[in-house]
């Protein structure tokens, strides 16, 4: 990660929220940090899936909670569109006629709940899209380019925290102890290695992403180095040998 870069700054904000709460950094800390940093009243996050049921994961306040539940119950709204389109859906004012047409039920219900502007940011790494981060404001609100870039960075961090939470229980070091050194540089090899692991382990892309990162954490290696080994065929995962390897040097 670039020292002084946006991602580094956002990560510090989230770590501060976690420290204040007295826990390990999680998606709730991303929500509270986003609310503190951006001109929004609340934030919520839902786990989304094309094949399984979607469900709300956390929210900073009642209105956010209602917004998450509304969208998942109704099956419409910015969060649903952001997930399906794979791009941010920015709604500065729900009171415009066009939006009320698009989300006939949600728009009214959201206004009723007390939201006026809603911003839905998909959590995604290529084909991996485990959820959506929703922000709302009680007054019409436009995010300027800087604020939007921050919001996107919050969503990226939420993606990693959400997926890394699945590593817990496998005996690896706690996320808080690991830092985020692997955020540095988006190496193409990391994405390629993730794809390679889906075949070697016969698993889905989300799971492959988690397994690659778990492997790096447990061996204290840089993610980019592990990925480069996978791409160069120096390292091979196998569905049977992996648990043994995971246990022998941690």
């Amino acid at each position: 990660m670039r020292p002084g870069g946006r991602s580094a700054r956002i990560q510090v904000l989230v770590a501060e929220q976690a420290a204040r709460r007295g826990g390990r950094a999680g998606v709730l800390d991303v929500c509270t940090a986003a609310v503190a940093a951006l001109p929004v009243g609340g934030a919520g996050l839902s786990a989304m899936s094309r094949t399984a049921a979607s469900h709300p994961l956390c929210s900073t306040d009642d209105i956010s909670e209602q917004l998450e539940e509304l969208q998942l119950t109704l099956g419409e709204g910015p969060c649903v569109d952001a997930f399906l389109d794979g791009s941010a859906v920015l709604t500065p004012d729900l009171l415009t006629g066009r939006l009320q047409d698009r989300w006939a039920v949600f728009a009214d219900a959201a206004l009723e709940a007390g939201a006026r502007a809603v911003f839905a940011l998909p959590l995604q790494v290529g084909a991996i899209s485990p959820g959506v981060l929703d922000l709302y404001a009680e007054v019409p609100t436009v995010l300027d380019p800087e604020q939007l870039a921050d919001a996107l960075a919050f969503a990226d961090l939420a993606t990693l925290l959400l997926l890394d939470a699945r590593i817990d229980g496998t005996g690896g070091p706690a996320p808080a102890d690991r830092g985020f050194e692997d955020l540095d540089g988006h190496r193409a090899e990391i994405d390629q290695a993730t794809g390679i692991l889906t075949v070697q382990l016969g698993i889905g892309i989300d799971e492959a992403f988690v397994r690659l990162r778990a492997h790096a954490y447990m061996r204290g290696r840089r993610l980019a180095d592990v990925a480069a080994d996978v791409v160069a065929h120096r390292l091979r995962f196998s569905p049977h040998a992996e648990p043994d390897r995971a246990g022998d040097d941690t």
């Binding site: 790494v125 290529g126 084909a127 991996i128 994405d191 794809g195 889906t198 892309i205």
Partner: peptide
């Protein structure tokens, strides 16, 4: 682009 890299990995391996 990330999606394409993931797919390249999967297809190359397969």
């Amino acid at each position: 682009r990330v999606l394409i890299e993931q797919v390249k990995g999967k297809l190359a391996e397969r």
